[in-house]
Design a binder for these strands. Sequence first.
DNA 1: TTGAAAGCGTTACCAT
DNA 2: ATGGTAACGCTTTCAA
Lengths: 332, 332
Amino acid sequence: MAVTIRDVARRAGVSASTASRAFTLSGPVDPETLERVRQAAEELGYARNNWASSLRGGSTKKLAMIVPDLTNPFFADLVRGAQARAHELGYLVLVADTDDDPRAESEMLESFADRVDGSLLCTPRTPEDQLGSLTSQGPTVLLHHTSDDVPYVISDVAQGVGLLVDNLVALGHRDIAYLDGPQESWSAQLRRTALDALDLPPGVAIRTVGQVPARFEGGVAGGDLVVASGATAVLAFNDVVALGLLHRLAARGVRVPGDVSVVGFDDVPVAAMATPALTTVAQPLVSSARAGVDMLVDLIEGRPVPDRAVVLPTHLVVRQSTRAVAAPERAA
Amino acid sequence: MAVTIRDVARRAGVSASTASRAFTLSGPVDPETLERVRQAAEELGYARNNWASSLRGGSTKKLAMIVPDLTNPFFADLVRGAQARAHELGYLVLVADTDDDPRAESEMLESFADRVDGSLLCTPRTPEDQLGSLTSQGPTVLLHHTSDDVPYVISDVAQGVGLLVDNLVALGHRDIAYLDGPQESWSAQLRRTALDALDLPPGVAIRTVGQVPARFEGGVAGGDLVVASGATAVLAFNDVVALGLLHRLAARGVRVPGDVSVVGFDDVPVAAMATPALTTVAQPLVSSARAGVDMLVDLIEGRPVPDRAVVLPTHLVVRQSTRAVAAPERAA
DNA sequence: TTGAAAGCGTTACCAT
DNA sequence: ATGGTAACGCTTTCAA
């Protein structure tokens, strides 16, 4: 049996209540007593059982985090960031992988209900209007998802898209293909909106050449569309799609970046390992998770939340998959 | 406040004890009563608070799982598999990412001590003699790590290496280079042992051409060693190293598989996305995690454990990075 | 500043 | 088969 707070109390010559106060600092306690209790705890190797404490006290010091797929480095990074920050704040993160099943989200959240102080939701698949049922379970923060009602942390996708396009334009590209992701995907919608809103210099055009699944195979399929388009540069929906693109272009003898420049989005770890390495935009995953935890804990502990919508900047990562084209205008 | 077992009991017209029994089936309960309790629970939307139950009953129905890096798809897969299986068995898996810091392992394990029924350890970095301190905390199963004392589940690396080499030999390769991983790495040692133990046909040789870090950069550096060796095929320490190799070979104008065949190990998701796609050996990650959970739960629940060492077979995944060479012998 | 006592939600034990 | 009671480890009144 583990050493309990009563063991510590006995050894320190105080009551359990005092010992409890000494640990939680939830009431007055003589500095000297406090030291004695700490000593005793140290000597006994006492570790507070925070599952027992949550029984009486309101707070559990636990957060739930729902992700669709831990295998996806995007979410793995978020989990890491969240766990690290939560640990610093004295919270434990319970991770649940829904295996890409939106129905599992509410189920898992329910099983956590009243056992956690709040939840971090990364649920790209769930439409906003269905979010309500998830949010009602207590303090909630959305990660990389927006909502009018629920606070969220997100990265500035529009700015990232701008970074990418600016770079291509600066390299002299005039005819840029966009290989789009799934129609219903929320991130795809974001990308489209961002592209539409872009203020392109005269003579520069971005054409959507197709819509493909957000997977490697999607990129492979898209390769032929891109070749047919004759564009000098392609903006892929994301890095994984770009990888498929690279694969198909190589198979067709199209050189990258010799014949066509390719850029992705996300900066997944493999982007750097592709041949050629992929120019892309990195999303601040770890810091967004940290910001999400901060926000959630503020919410939980009743502190005012500066703003309910945090938008973090992305940054450009230039690698070998892009290169300058001869600018005809200069010659003229 | 959540609905408690007493609320359910009251509505069903029974005592809390009976209701408890109805849920846990830990004692006699009239079928009709049971149905009534179930009804009441249903109507009230009752969810058992298993953190409160673990307080009285000995078992917590929770497992700890320690991984060095969630971002690594290898571990992400293990976590997924473990969570899925644990869920089926009514257990919750608490995941802790040590961020590759071996010291964090014992720290996190300690913080879980007495709050979980057992632990699943995936700690490739920790030498076996230091495992003792981790194991003393209660039922423990090692994942992809061996030990004389602690039960473990592992995949048959030697058999996997054999698969790879057999395939290369079958393709007519006689001169095979091995690009080794870090000296001290446990998996590298396994690979070396397996290679040494191999029964090669006459005329076939495997030469270690270098030792590199188990990262993309390691593969890049190894590329030049491989080219210098003149071998017709390379066995890379793992897929990530193979990816680096691919990158460097492409940069040097060496065609894969035209000039040299490349094989990796692990079948990480990106192996399929490389250009050319990588021939490799897949480790049964999800099933090993499931087997680990089964074993741990058997241990916890006092059932006899069939064998304390489970070794799962790997399987070969042939992709485009390998091809047959002309076999001079045939011409002769 | 401290301690006694009650209670958090659940289950084990023992009596009925 | 069922219910009462105590207990799990801790926190929180409240009185001293």
